[in-house]
Design a protein around this nucleic acid. Structure first.
Lengths: 144, 144
DNA sequence: TATTGTTATACTCTATAACTATA
DNA sequence: TATAGTTATAGAGTATAACAATA
């Protein structure tokens, strides 16, 4: 294994580890008010930009899961009044998802919760934050 | 909201998004042989260093989940012969987990699968990989 | 024929609460 | 009393397969 492979592997391990650690913090192991959102529900809220509805099939793609899961996921968010299923103008098979005002509010609450002053992400320098964003944007926009 | 808060929020969104994207790739949406490991099982395999047994309570801490989950998680890994529960020399309440040879092998297979030449992580420059690791190590070692 | 979303099913993950053994 | 791990339970997440509506 070359040096580069080992570094890529280490980076992957750390990225996954971050996810599990922040998940614990979001519950309450790390303090803060519990918002009663599962990681998947919270992620969906952030994948839908306020004012920019998202088709359900694209949501399944970005989540990296089977479309059948999205049905139940959206059912639960919709029953709490956080998102709405709307008709798509062009294609009557497609349902697009829009955040409700309540969904938009909860979305920004989760953001505050994960970036509080005492939390790891907020303790990075401004330079580190920007560097991290730049690298992650390449990772996330790339082909999987 | 200050600029720094917004950057921290953006970084968090991207980190979570990476997790969901790579999860899809690991299954087969992105090619490769399916190894039949859930994200949590795969992560446990990587939290146990070969030759360095890990107590179950520390595993629950790092996973950011309740200790009761670890029981079932380890049950499934143990029934596949990937990890072993061992006695702890000092404290008879504690069980430490060790990778079996099969577990060690599968661990490196998952690593190869996520860092393949055509995948996003491998396409970062060597500098980017090292920078990413340095920042993530600060995030992950920090207090939650 | 192909695609979008849903339903049915089985299994994994997860938190909560109550319990046993050990410290 | 406190801690480590387990069990029981209920609910959420997930893939697979089969289906209806639409393209």
């Amino acid at each position: 294994m070359t040096r580069g492979d080992a570094d890529a592997g280490r980076a992957w391990q750390l990225l996954v580890r971050f996810f599990f650690a922040q998940r614990g913090a979001q519950r309450g192991l790390g303090g803060g008010v519990p918002l009663d959102l599962s990681p998947a529900q919270c992620h969906v809220l952030h994948l839908i930009e306020p004012g920019e509805p998202m088709p359900m099939n694209r949501l399944a793609d970005t989540l990296g899961c089977d479309p059948s899961n999205v049905t139940g996921l959206v059912d639960r968010l919709e029953s709490r009044g956080l998102v709405r299923r709307c008709a798509s103008p062009g294609d009557r098979r497609v349902r697009v998802l829009a955040l409700t005002p309540a969904g938009t509010r909860l979305r920004s609450q989760t953001l505050k919760q994960m970036t509080g002053r005492h939390l790891p992400l907020a303790r990075l320098t401004a330079d580190e934050q920007r560097t991290l964003i730049r690298i992650l944007e390449r990772l996330v926009d790339d082909e999987w």
